[in-house]
Each structure stands twice: as structure tokens, then as C-alpha cells.
């Protein structure tokens, strides 16, 4: 209240005397107001490779969500000799339906992308695999990598001290111990238990959790470094002198300024997570049949690769495209957010 009273007297001052040396309107000519975010967005949209990659990823995800319900309505009702007498497309166009009479078939109007050694529909399995990959990516990167990484990175960078020391030792430990080996160990030990309690979902959670545990320290390191740099900026000190609390400084100044770094690092981590999920499934430690995942599909077909290379190549190609696309998007975002690439 004291402040407002004083400012009234200041207003009077203002009316009495004209403003000092008004700057000429050199900025008035500018039309488009450019903001840091808008500049980054403009740079990203000029990166063709990243844009194409982003489009492909979006299309793949949309397809994996929209196509299955449609696909399950298309096709004749099959009469089969074994098991089911009649099978509707809503049955045989699913990832798990085993059709002994259509084993190892190539693409046809009945099975658009063919079938595997059990006669399961490859298209459905690939689409389900894409969903699994994305789900793992979101869980690993979205929750653990970003969540834990940012939380501990900022705390360690801003406060230093014991958190910083513990983080440093922990990351050293993780770096010294191959992440994938750790994941193999954990999924190997707890895999059965997870399957028993929650089926394939339990397995997915376990895989995501272990993968996440191995990637977040790297993220925390990036964030810590960036926070340390930001802390040296005078606007942080200015915020303190204007009465902001540490929490306010972190929320208002540190987080917005590390956001771009986090987004870039997270995007690049997605491709890592997708690959590692694939590898775990390939080793039989991820999603279990009759569930589907791209890695599992490679695992299932690899023994017949000489005879039916197509069945391995299809999930491998989808996996490769996904990973490449995320890498390109990450690169594009890094360039877009890096002020040095400005001109």
C-alpha cells in the first residue's frame, strides 16, 4: 500500500515534466513482432528433413490408431477347417489371431501385408507394434526422462551441494554400467512377475521403467549444465533483487529457458527408447506373444529369415523409419532452438 501511495506522487511528477529524451520511433517501422519462440518455429519449418520426418511420424501414429477398426471390417467371413468354423475380419484382422491355413503368405487382398509363420496378420501386428513403441517412448521419455531429469537437473544445478554430489555419483554409476545390460537384468529377473500380475501391460510398464531409469541421468546432466549457465546470467540475480523466491526463479526463469534443450534432448532420447524396446523384445524380454511389438516381430521371424526375409524386413524397416524420423526431428529442433544458427 505504501508503494501505491508513492507512485501517485510520482505520477504528479510525471505530469509536471515531460519524459526524458524520448527514443525515436526506430522500431515503429517493423511489422512482424518476432519472439524467440516464433523465430525457432520459423527455423524449424524451414528444415525440410525435420518437417518430412515429423509428417511421417504423425502419419504412422494416426494410421496405427485409425486403421485397425476400419481394417477389421474389411474382408470376407472365412470358413476354416480347424478351430473356428467361421472367422470374421474382426477376428482374423487382429494381431493375435492364428490362422493355420494362411501361414507365411505374402501381401494379398485378404491379408494386406501378409501373414507370419503362425498365420497372424502382419499389418495388424505392425500397427500394434507402432503403438507399443510410441507408448514406451511416451512413458520412458515423457515421464521418467523429462520428469526425473529436469527435476534433479534443476535442483542440482541451482542448489548444488549434496544433491549435486549425489547426482554426479549416480550418473557416473549409470555411465559405467551399460544401460541395456541393466535393462536386460531387470526385465530378466522381474519379467515373469510382471506378466503374472498385469500381463503384457505389466511387461510394458516394467520395460519402460527400466529403460527410463537408464536415460534420465543423462538428461539431468544436460539440465544441470544449462541451469549452472543460466544461474550466472544477471537476470537471475535481478529476479532475486526484485524479491523473487528461489521457487519463483526456477519456475519463471530457469524452466522456460531450459525448455528448448529438454525438448531437443527428449526427442533424441525417443529414438533411443524405441530402439531399446525393440532390442529387449528381440531378446524375448519385452512384450510376450501373442502380444505384438516391432522387436518381437523381428524375434519371431528371424529364424526363417533365409526363407521369408520379408517378414523380418517389414518390422525392421518400420522400426528404422521411426528411429530415423525422431533423430531428424531432434536435429531439426536443436538447430531451430540454437541461437547460433540464426543467420
Amino acid at each position: 500500500m505504501d508503494i501505491e501511495k508513492k507512485s501517485e506522487s510520482m505520477l504528479e511528477h510525471e505530469i509536471l515534466s515531460s519524459p526524458l529524451e524520448m527514443e525515436p520511433d526506430i522500431l515503429a517501422a517493423e511489422q512482424n513482432v518476432s519472439t524467440p519462440l516464433r523465430d525457432s518455429f520459423r527455423r524449424f519449418t524451414q528444415d525440410k528433413r525435420a518437417l518430412v520426418s515429423l509428417t511421417i511420424v504423425i502419419l504412422m501414429v494416426l494410421t496405427s490408431l485409425i486403421l485397425p477398426p476400419i481394417y477389421q471390417r474389411i474382408g470376407p467371413v472365412l470358413s476354416l477347417r480347424h478351430g473356428f468354423l467361421h472367422a470374421a475380419p474382426s477376428q482374423y484382422h487382429t494381431p493375435w489371431f492364428i490362422n493355420n491355413e494362411y501361414v507365411d503368405k505374402g501381401p494379398s487382398s485378404l491379408y494386406w501385408l501378409g501373414t507370419n509363420y503362425l498365420g497372424q496378420d502382419l499389418l495388424s501386428r505392425v500397427l500394434a507394434g507402432i503403438q507399443v513403441s510410441m507408448l514406451v517412448a511416451v512413458m520412458v521419455v515423457g515421464l521418467l526422462d523429462v520428469g526425473l531429469g529436469v527435476l534433479f537437473g534443476v535442483l542440482a544445478g541451482y542448489y548444488g551441494g549434496i544433491i549435486d554430489t549425489v547426482l554426479a555419483r549416480f550418473t557416473d554409476l549409470i555411465f559405467a554400467f551399460p544401460g541395456l545390460l541393466f535393462a536386460v537384468l531387470i526385465t530378466g529377473i522381474f519379467g515373469q512377475k510382471a506378466i503374472q500380475t498385469a500381463g503384457n501391460n505389466g511387461m510394458l510398464i516394467l520395460v519402460s521403467f527400466t529403460l527410463g531409469l537408464t536415460v534420465w541421468p543423462q538428461m539431468a546432466r544436460y539440465v544441470r549444465g544449462q541451469t549452472l549457465q543460466l544461474k550466472e546470467q544477471q537476470f537471475i540475480e535481478a529476479a532475486r533483487t526484485t524479491g523473487s523466491t528461489s521457487l519463483q526463479i526456477i519456475i519463471r526463469h530457469i524452466l522456460p529457458n531450459i525448455a528448448s534443450l529438454v525438448v531437443v534432448a527428449a526427442t533424441l532420447d525417443i529414438s533411443g527408447a524405441v530402439i531399446n524396446e525393440g532390442v529387449l523384445s528381440l531378446l524375448g524380454l519385452g512384450v510376450q506373444p501373442p502380444g505384438s511389438s516391432l522387436g518381437l516381430m523381428i524375434n519371431e521371424s528371424i529364424s526363417n529369415i533365409a526363407q521369408y526375409p520379408y517378414e523380418t524386413l517389414l518390422p525392421a524397416a518400420v522400426l528404422a523409419v521411426l528411429v530415423l524420423c525422431f533423430s531428424f526431428i531432434g536435429d531439426g529442433m536443436r538447430d531451430a532452438f540454437d541461437p547460433r544458427t540464426k543467420d
Binding site: 544477471q234 537476470f235 540475480e237 533483487t241 526484485t242 524479491g243 522456460p256
Partner: peptide, 17 residues
Amino acid sequence: RANMQMIFQDPFSSLDP
């Protein structure tokens, strides 16, 4: 802090971009 303030040296790093 309301009563004591600071003007900083570096006009570039003292404003959050």
C-alpha cells in the same frame, strides 16, 4: 528488497530473453 534495488552491468544478460 522493495527498498533496495540494483542496476546491472550487462544490458544483454540482465533481461530474460
